[in-house]
């Protein structure tokens, strides 16, 4: 366990090196939310119907704001493509001969990245949320705090495992960049990042919510916003845990099968 603690500490230090980059990235991350608010205020202004996808304008804005929090936990930029690259270019051999598990190593890297991110992004997030406070529903009720925190933490693990599982495809296909793009696009829509899944027609919504993506963003956001009862919130947390177990099994199985095919290209 101590070796992974080292990985964590090194990754922590590494993150603090590129501060200018960090601030640019955080600033840019807020730009889509401005566009989203602008677009939805236009849509709500144009129609007489004041509830869309069962959400009022204020709820719609708060949905997108909380999506940013959920994504801060669940998004794993470059994880799947990094794994694909390590497999394709033979970098994986380092991990085969070292007593370090690639997946657990990367889990610690990501935990370190997220820790730094949460520390440094608190101020810009607090500012934006304070500025938009009129739209927000207020703090979760006392009995909702546990599922709210759990669902966010689980969305981190879910996001991590989904990305690793997709990256593993690289064991079987040499060039997966386009597959990864398809995956990113699907994730963007099916997780509820682009719009709340409640806006989909019933049949389609039921199909989409059977996939793990909805548990990465849409459901955690609903829990945070207090749009579901405490029992319902716990059910969501349970399904998340179930998906994590399934994906962990898939990753562990896929990893073993993949390593048998692995040829360690490169020199």
């Amino acid at each position: 366990m101590r070796k992974y603690w080292c990985v964590f500490k090194i990754a922590l230090a590494d993150r603090f090196v590129y501060r200018a980059d960090f601030f640019i990235a955080t600033f840019l991350r807020f730009t889509p939310i401005i566009t989203t608010i602008a677009l939805w205020s236009a849509v709500y202004a144009g129609g007489a119907d004041r509830r869309i996808g069962n959400l009022t304008y204020g709820e719609m804005v708060s949905y997108y704001l909380v999506v940013m929090i959920a994504r801060a936990f669940g998004s794993m930029p470059g994880l799947a493509s990094g794994l694909a690259k390590d497999i394709r270019e033979g970098e994986l051999r380092r991990f085969i001969i070292q007593p370090v598990n690639y997946v657990i190593y990367h889990l610690h890297l990501r935990m370190a990245h997220k820790s730094v991110y949460f520390v440094m992004a608190t101020v810009p997030y607090a500012l934006v949320f304070w500025w938009c406070r009129a739209y927000l529903p207020g703090w979760p009720a006392a009995d909702q705090w546990a599922p709210v925190l759990l669902t966010l933490v689980l969305s981190f693990f879910l996001g991590f495992l989904i990305n690793i599982a997709v990256g593993l495809l690289s064991f079987w296909f040499l060039e997966v960049t386009s597959f990864l793009f398809i995956f990113m696009v699907s994730q963007y829509f099916l997780s509820g990042h682009q719009f709340p899944l409640t806006m989909l027609p019933d049949g389609l919504r039921e199909a989409v919510t059977c996939l793990p993506f909805a548990y990465e963003t849409f459901y955690p956001v609903m829990v945070v916003l207090g749009k579901c009862s405490t029992a319902e919130a716990w059910r969501i947390v349970g399904v998340q845990a179930l998906w994590i177990a399934v994906l962990a099994a898939v990753v562990s199985f896929g990893w073993k099968r993949g390593l048998r095919r692995y040829a360690a290209f490169g020199g």
Binding site: G47, V185, L200
Partner: peptide
């Protein structure tokens, strides 16, 4: 696929309003 998803999004918007 990306275009298809964008079209669905546009459909959803205009199901709720006549003009943006």
């Amino acid at each position: 696929m990306w275009l298809g998803m964008m079209l669905i999004f546009v459909e959803i918007i205009f199901a709720n309003t006549k003009n943006v």
